[in-house]
Structures are given as C-alpha cells and as structure tokens.
Amino acid sequence: MKELTRRGLIVASAGGVVAGLPSVASGQGHNWPERPIRLIVPYPPGGSTDVLARLLGERLKDRLGGTWVVENRPGAGGNTGIDVVAKSAPDGYTIGSATVGHFSISQYLYSRMPFDSDRDLIPISLTWELPNVAVVPTQHVPARTIPEFIAWAKGRSGGYFYGSPGVGTSPHLCGALFATRIGLTATHVPFRGAAQTIPAMLGGDVQLAIDNLPSYVGAIAAGQFRVLAVTTPERWPTLPDVPTMAEAGVPDFVATSWAAFVAPSATPRAIVDRISEALRAIAADPAVQQRFETAGARPLGSTPEEVREKSRHERPIWKEMVQISGARLD
C-alpha cells in the first residue's frame, strides 16, 4: 500500500515536471473545469427533470465557471442516460441528473440493470424534490378529502380508474399502493405522460392520479383539479391547506420524487465536493427557491453521504410498492 502510494507520488510528480505543474493539479481537480461539462438528463427535453436541471446548470455555471451543456439521453425509463454517466470517464466532465428511480426503484422493476447505483455512481448532492399529489377532476369527482373520496369510490361499481405516465413510474406505484391501503378496487390506466392524463381526467374517464405536482400546477390554479393530499412527510409550502397522506388518514404513505446529481464513481472527490457545495449554496438561494416553487418543486442540497443514506432508507417502501403494483419491466 505504502509502495503504491509512493510510486503514485513519483509518477505524479514526474508527470508534473514533464508537463509543467498543471497536470498534477488537474488530477486533483484544482483546474477543473477546463472544458465544457456534460450535464446528462436521462429524459426527453421539456420534462420537469429537464427544466429543473437546466435551471441548476445555469446557476452552476455562475458559481463554478465552465460551460454546462445539458444533453438529453432519454430511453429505457431513464436508465439509458444514467448508464452513459456510469460508463463515462471519471474526470468530472460528465454529470448526470438522476432521480429516486435510479437509486431506489429500478432495481425492483428491472430483472437486469445496466448499472448499479451504489457501485458505479457517486452521488454529488440532492438537487430537488417534488411531491406527488392526489388530484381529482373537480367537475367529475365531488370529493374534497380522502375519506370523502373513499366513500364516493365505494359507491361506484367496479371501482375507479387512476392514471399514470406509464408502468413502474412513481405515480403508478403510488396509485397501486393507495388502492391497496384504502382497500378498494382500482384500475390502472397508463398514459404517455401527464399531457395525456390531464385531458382524460378532465373528460371524466379517469378519476384519480397521484402524480408529480409540476405537471398539474397550472390546472390546479385554474380550479380544474382539486388536491386531496400530498405524499410528502410534511405539508407542501405552496399547498398549505392540503393535508399529508397521514393527516388524511392513510398512514405510511411518504413517497416523494427526489433527484440528485451523480458522477461516475471514480470521479475525484475534490470535484464532487466542489459541485456539492455549490449545489447546497444554490438550494439556499431565495431566487432559486422561488423559481422552483413556480415549477412545483423545492430545491435541495446535501452531502454525497446524505444521498446514499436517503436512497437506502427509501428502498423498503418502494420495494413494497413495486410488489403491490405487480409492475415488471425488462
């Protein structure tokens, strides 16, 4: 071990002598960033992950310098893009915007995963969280609270329909868990995103969705949807009157969609820490908080270890949800 370190030092200093000092420095990340940084978003442009990652990329540029280029690599429910990150050179120039799915859900959904989030990736910082909200179309569902909804749904023969943006997504899993918890029959109707779910709900075909808040902000403001509960542990700042699931009578139902920036696991710790610090500072910026709030999200900042802990902590509930929903992807 000692031998190795010494040799490493000799090689490093020799390299420094030959190429002039910067090479040692760049190995440690002191000169980083020297070239554009790829911020890989594993979803198509225009979604909430894309929008929020772009907002953060702008702020990171201001704080750390360099050019932050958002690169959309959609595919396989977000696995393709994060796999690209996992297999990139660990030089601090490839950063990925991962979500709770990559850390705590995918391993239960897919029989084989192209990467292991614990082994192949190092988290940088939590970046944001957004609640899933239980929404009903105002025109078609009279219920104002969860108990009212349960009573109303009991009166329908065959139960109710709930929408989601696809099999295995957090709205699908939440919808399945919810139906189980309240003990009612419900049928899952998968769509290709909230842009399809919303019209189906406004048309009265689908009665409930426990979907990501951002897609519904506009429609909620216009009174087209009523929010019955949020899935966060505490009430959500922009929806102060809406109870949490526990308050509404559905205990053990905390499921937020959170996100974190990640890098290939061998990325120099110095670089990871610099980005992590910057992200924490950005999350504390009131202007950023306000911008995220309009979009239905809340900026977060944390240490890499806190991300790891959160992802481990949440695995049991997501595992349960995947089992209940019966979702299986390959």
Binding site: G46, G47, D50, L55, G218, A219, A221
Partner: peptide, 21 residues
C-alpha cells in the same frame, strides 16, 4: 414533443402554462 419544449421555455422563464395563461 416540440410543444413540451416550448412549455419548458415558459417554465424556465417562470411562467406556468395553464388555463389561466
């Protein structure tokens, strides 16, 4: 998809498209 991107442009500017827009 293009409209989704336009929507993103709105949101980045701090405007939430919806029935009230």
């Amino acid at each position: 998809a293009v409209m989704a991107l336009m929507m993103a442009a709105f949101i980045i500017k701090g405007i939430q498209p919806g029935p009230n827009m």
